[in-house]
């Protein structure tokens, strides 16, 4: 995956943001303020899914079903945990924040390693080729 491929998901997110802000304002859709904590958890879960998907795509292990089910279930679980925690009087939403947050960092670091490794390999290859051409072209 080249870096410009990342432009599509990013523009998708910006489009969604724009449509959301515009839509919520113009069609007077109001989400009750009590749901704000659950909503932010859902956003975090969605962000985690995007990063997870990017990483899986990079590693060539992307699978449609895992991606889609993970998105839906993670989002639901995070929000449900927070809701149940509110009922129990424990801030269970923190669990979701902690796990999803650490996974975000984890995925980002793996993606970073992937690109850096690739660059190092490429450099090594070029050096080897250069040495080879030097050896073949120079008179023995």
């Amino acid at each position: 995956m080249r870096l410009r491929d990342a432009a599509l998901p990013i523009s998708g997110m910006i489009l969604g943001l724009g449509v959301g802000v515009f839509g919520f304002r113009n069609f007077h859709i109001h989400i009750p303020p009590d749901y704000a904590p659950y909503l932010s958890l859902a956003a975090l879960a969605a962000l985690d899914t995007v990063f997870g998907g990017l990483r899986a795509g990079l590693e060539g292990r992307f699978q449609n079903d895992i991606f889609a089910s993970g998105f839906v279930l993670n989002t639901l679980l995070a929000s449900t945990l927070a809701w149940v925690g509110d009922g129990l009087g424990i801030n269970l939403g923190l669990v979701a924040v902690l796990v999803l947050g650490s996974r975000l960092f984890n995925n980002l670091s793996l993606m970073r390693r992937f690109y850096l490794n690739k660059r190092a390999l490429l450099k090594k290859q070029q050096e080897e080729e250069a040495v080879q051409t030097l050896q073949t072209s120079s008179p023995a």
Binding site: G12, M13, F71
Partner: peptide, 8 residues
């Protein structure tokens, strides 16, 4: 999914 993320 990014689009949905934007909506959320």
């Amino acid at each position: 999914v990014s689009f949905v993320l934007g909506l959320i």
